[in-house]
Nucleic acid binder design. Sequence first.
DNA 1: CGCGCCCTTGAGAGTAGTCAAGCTTTGTGG
DNA 2: CCACAAAGCTTGACTACTCTCAAGGGCGCG
Lengths: 235, 235
Amino acid sequence: MSIVTTDPCHDLTSLELLRGLSPEALEEARAAARIRQLPRNTRVFNQGDMDVRAHALLQGSVRISQSGSDGAQVVVRFITSGEMFGTVALFTDHRYPADAETLSDCVEVSWSETALATLMSRHSPVAINFIRIIGRRLQEAQERIRELATQRVEQRIAHALLRLSRRAGRATADGTTIELPLRRKDIADICGTTLHSASRILTPWEKAGWLTTRDQHLTIREIARIRRVAEAAGD
Amino acid sequence: MSIVTTDPCHDLTSLELLRGLSPEALEEARAAARIRQLPRNTRVFNQGDMDVRAHALLQGSVRISQSGSDGAQVVVRFITSGEMFGTVALFTDHRYPADAETLSDCVEVSWSETALATLMSRHSPVAINFIRIIGRRLQEAQERIRELATQRVEQRIAHALLRLSRRAGRATADGTTIELPLRRKDIADICGTTLHSASRILTPWEKAGWLTTRDQHLTIREIARIRRVAEAAGD
DNA sequence: CGCGCCCTTGAGAGTAGTCAAGCTTTGTGG
DNA sequence: CCACAAAGCTTGACTACTCTCAAGGGCGCG
């Protein structure tokens, strides 16, 4: 495992967290960071783990999921490269509230809580960037709460697909491909429904040619249709 | 409207945001703050408003609610004294994503975005405190997402009552009184259900003597019963 | 070839939403 | 101080969305 820090995959400057920093400050951040390469299907951390760190993904994708005491599971979010994760417990609980598992080979960078605090106190843009990141996340979470509370499964799935295609989509000849390995179960867990309902809704869409699934990769062909379902209040 | 800064109601030192600051830093924070007294049923801000500020409540209570383009409404949370609110849009959108309305006479303090950024860069504990506050909030939001996705209305209401009694409860002879003016509609909007379902569930509990409502104030008499409903997976 | 994983589909049941009506409490003005 | 209006709450009947249970099909891998 040879890690060459000049490898573009290990370039920290692309991270929003470190935006606006001087070269010296960046160097400090790099020095305090731990960079790891993780193979597919690795646990990055488990719900309940102590020794919390702030993580960011330089390469690959990660699924964050939470399970309740009753066993019910929800996908909190999918992380793609450039995003931070595992940040919720920092400075509070010191326990991860969810599991993180790699969905592909990943390059992950992380800082200890104290290193991050030091970095923030020496370079306030880090703190502001961090606040912006989790503020946005909080907004997304609240939007999701509203969706769960007020929309039907069909609409929620449509919204989920739109969001995924915005965050992890790549334009192809056929439409927009979501660059994440997504099982029906994942989609269900994102939307707070069951595998069965998700299947019942997606299959007709697929039959109608609105989207295709190949090898756990989803391509949206007629995004306008999906958008119409998402908007439809119920008529 | 005479504001005496020595009035205990205007004491900023109790705010978590300013915890761990030197007297000089506190004075700086005070100088940059805007303190207002707001009568009951006042809009502090409206969804979509620009010119975002960071708010904290020194006295009273505030309801934060969000309405979607379809008109459906969700209560994001209730704020009681000592808590911050309206912080989600800072450094990002510059638009409030929700409405805030006072439920009682309030004393509110707020900082402009730039003032807060300055304060944070000069005193890093402010940044860390802030991150802790919204991190905890994000955790709560994710827990709520899981609840909405996996639990039945009855359980969600039970959980909501438990949370409210923890955050805004005062022990009385009869039990724990939630010190917020709560209408059935509010409870419904917290739990993502309808006024009707909330009523159908709460009335039997009230008949059974588990709780009482008087003058929009709810008292939990048999918290153990509520807790049992909250835990019950469905048996 | 057979096993495991993932997905589809059907039937039936139940939770919770909608519609509708009437009741209670609160507040206001004569 | 009473009357009436408005707001909030309860309750019933009906509907329908979504879950659960159950069975079977397709695909890849050992």
